[in-house]
């Protein structure tokens, strides 16, 4: 699962050059610890106080707000489809290829189904796949990557071999091959397949990050006070990588959406499951582009929108964690308060 951006840094709180400042503000090198915002990788993520902090951070950043709103919208669709769309999406009872009307907000498909209902109900499998793969791939990558880096030696070598093999194999053809063996992959199978083939990139990232953290003094300090290795990995290392893990989750979710839709589109998904990808499959089979273009456009737009939501949130978390990436604002000539 390729990503074009560099690995997220776990910021150094306080900055190196300025020693001795409890509320260290800024140093010319640009390391900033701004109170009130979660530090990249630092600051306890648990607890109500930090949730509030995160909420404030999201509303302050425009990208984050848009992404969060979009995502929330789709989650609502997935959770309560019946409330929003009143028709049964599977029922092929209507007249075919009707246009837009108040009864059928998006018209009907060539098979007589209500398109709006399809789109709404189609959100759930997609979101399930997105979150399932996001969580699954990230967790597997975390266990493998962090352990390999921290334990080192032969363990690192073996796990690396495993990771690299999967990394080198082109993902989509692999998915096609596996998918064709499974004769119509339902949601659960889709999650499993994409997760098991896609954790390797994140594992690499997390391994690199752990390698860079490995010689941090606080890990040596943990070792010197007698902590076991598993404890150090789970309690001392992983919590400092939360921002990287969040990024990994969002990236994996994004690619799960795209890959699963693509697989469904070429017919490797279960065609009886209603999801945006399968809608595209049926639309393609019925030459929808000429007769009912909405059948292709709407599910396509939904895929794009959901993907964009994940991507925006990803960029936003990067900016929140690393102030150097924030867009430059016009400097207001603030009234400088002098100690009178």
């Amino acid at each position: 699962m390729a990503t074009l951006r560099t690995p997220r840094e776990t910021g150094e709180p306080g900055g190196g050059a300025e020693v001795g400042q409890p509320e260290a503000v800024v140093s010319p090198t640009g390391a900033i610890a701004v109170a009130g915002l979660p530090l990249a990788g630092g600051g306890s993520i648990t607890g109500a106080r930090s949730l509030r902090r995160m909420g404030r951070a999201i509303t302050a950043n425009r990208k984050a707000t848009v992404g969060a709103v979009l995502l929330a919208f789709f989650i609502l669709l997935a959770l309560f489809p019946g409330v929003i769309a009143h028709d049964d999406p599977n029922a092929e009872i209507y007249h075919r290829l009707l246009g837009l009307s108040s009864k059928h907000l998006l018209g009907t498909t060539a098979l007589g189904q209500d398109m709006f209902a399809q789109v709404v109900y189609g959100a759930r499998p997609v979101l399930l796949i997105a979150f399932g793969v996001g969580l699954g791939a990230t967790i597997i990558a975390m266990l493998i990557g962090v352990t390999a880096a921290y334990v080192g030696g032969a363990t690192d070598g073996t796990l690396n071999l495993l990771t690299d093999v999967l990394l080198v194999i082109p993902l989509f053809p692999l998915l096609i091959i596996i998918g064709s063996y499974l004769h119509g992959a339902g949601t659960l199978v889709m999650i499993a397949v994409i997760t098991l083939t896609g954790w390797s990139y994140t594992a690499r990232q997390l391994r690199s990050q752990t390698l860079s953290l490995r010689n941090r003094d606080y890990l040596e300090a943990a070792k010197v006070r007698g902590e076991r290795r598993l404890y150090v990995i789970c309690v001392e290392i992983i919590p400092t990588m939360t921002s990287l893990l969040v990024a990994a989750f969002l990236t994996n979710a994004l690619y799960a959406v795209l890959f699963s839709s693509a697989l469904q589109f070429i017919g490797l998904g279960d065609p009886n499951v209603i999801s945006w990808g399968t809608m595209l499959y049926w639309a393609e089979n019925n030459e929808a582009f000429q007769v009912a273009p909405l059948w292709i456009i709407v599910p396509g737009l939904c895929i794009v929108a959901l993907g964009a939501a994940f991507a925006l949130l990803n960029y936003a978390f990067d900016e929140i964690g690393n102030p150097a990436l924030r867009p430059a604002r016009k400097m207001r000539k603030a009234r400088v308060q002098r100690a009178s």
């Binding site: 150094e12 709180p13 990788g41 630092g42 003094d217 040596e220 300090a221 006070r225 919590p239 939360t242």
Partner: peptide
């Protein structure tokens, strides 16, 4: 052992009580 770098020798994610309490627990 006490380490050199005050910025790197304490885990930034936890409160400063974490290390002491872990020492005592162990």
């Amino acid at each position: 052992m006490v380490f050199q770098d005050p910025f790197a020798s304490i885990n930034p994610v936890f409160r400063v009580s974490h290390g002491v309490l872990r020492c005592l627990k162990l």
